[in-house]
């Protein structure tokens, strides 16, 4: 059971959270402008990364907020969690965090 640092509530057990898939996939602003191919990519194409992965979580049984996280899928170490609308930390900012 992971320990996840909710940007609002602090470290909480995974039992309180729901995973929300890959992070930073924005719904196209004007779907009508999308080609079928683009829309299909938006709907279905996701990365399957071994290593550092950006993902969404929701603190469902907590503050209820969605937020983003950078997790190393090989070690389960979270390098960062950050609020919706914030930019993911840069490589420089991540230096020094144990992966």
């Amino acid at each position: 059971m992971l320990l996840i640092n909710c940007p609002y509530c602090g470290e909480r057990p995974e039992l309180e959270f729901v995973h929300g898939g890959q992070a930073h996939i924005a719904r196209p602003g004007d779907p009508a402008e999308c080609s079928d191919q683009q829309w299909a990519e938006y709907l279905y194409r996701r990365d399957n990364i071994k290593g550092l992965h950006g993902e969404r979580w929701r603190h469902t049984h907590g503050c209820g907020r969605f937020f983003n996280a950078l997790r190393d899928t090989t070690s389960d170490v979270f390098l960062a969690t950050y609020k919706v609308g914030e930019q993911p930390p840069t490589q420089a900012q991540l230096k020094g965090v144990k992966a």
Partner: peptide, 13 residues
């Protein structure tokens, strides 16, 4: 409710 919150919190802020 979760789907509504998702759109509200992440797409239609």
């Amino acid at each position: 409710l979760a789907m509504m919150e998702d759109y509200l919190q992440t797409e239609w802020t």
